[in-house]
């Protein structure tokens, strides 16, 4: 058989729009997960004891349930329970954030706990408050140490946005499906999809790795 990429070339704007949505959803997901996961991770390290149990329950359940199940729940089941119907994009954002924030929380916690206690002691010995010690001494080192894991989260977030295609968020994979159906050229369309995801993600993970190689010494105490 011969490959014919002309339908893709003709519809490049349609696909590019999908890619934009993919990247937008991923960026928002990462941003929200960073805020939510960071808060949860820090609360597990420094928060009150009574808060730990519910947080651990949240983290463990998110890590045990497929993201697709979370998505189906937020989009189809939540409206039945609450009566509120969410637009697909927002349902996708909430489901992806709920899941990825759990992983982010674990990364933050591991990063903070890996900074040896002597560093906090040195900060306190200078007369810093506990909050100052965390902000100025522990977190900057923890963030550097978290970079490799953060790079993985970044690529997982971009890839996981493809799951939102099942609730018809018109992101890149969803548009590929549409185009494949209309053009009867699924092989070419999905080959292109593979290449597009790869070309998008490869620089992201490489950049994070290079940044880490440069900065690693700043987190080594």
């Amino acid at each position: 058989m011969s490959l014919d990429f002309s339908p893709i070339l003709q519809s490049w704007q349609f696909l590019l729009g999908g890619l934009g949505l993919t990247l937008g959803l991923a960026a928002l997901t990462v941003l929200c997960s960073l805020v939510l996961g960071g808060a949860i991770g820090l609360a597990r390290c420094y928060g009150p004891a009574w808060l730990r149990l519910p947080l651990v329950f949240y983290i463990d359940s998110m890590r045990s349930v497929p993201v697709l199940v979370v998505l189906v729940w937020t989009y189809f089941a939540l409206p039945i329970v609450t009566g509120a119907v969410l637009p697909p994009f927002w349902a996708g954002l909430i489901a992806l954030t709920a899941q990825i924030a759990a992983y982010m929380a674990e990364i933050v916690r591991a990063g903070v706990e890996s900074v040896r206690p002597g560093q906090t002691r040195a900060a306190l010995a200078l007369g810093m408050s506990r909050a100052q010690a965390v902000r100025q001494v522990v977190l900057p080192q923890a963030v550097v140490r978290m970079l490799p894991a953060f790079g993985s989260i970044l690529s997982i977030a971009i890839k996981d946005t493809a799951i939102a295609s099942v609730i018809a968020v018109p992101e890149y994979l969803n548009r590929s499906q549409t185009l494949a159906g209309e053009s009867f050229r699924p092989i070419e369309v999905y080959l292109t999809a593979m290449a597009v995801y790869f070309i998008t993600l490869f620089p992201v993970t490489r950049t994070v790795d290079i940044a880490y190689a440069r900065l690693a010494h700043l987190g080594r105490s």
Binding site: G118, A122, A123, A125, G127, Q141, R220, S221
Partner: peptide, 20 residues
Amino acid sequence: MRAVRQRMGMVFQNFELFPH
């Protein structure tokens, strides 16, 4: 203790310089 700590300097076996 915070006010008191500021009046004492401490030096540790492992230096504990801030690496960043």
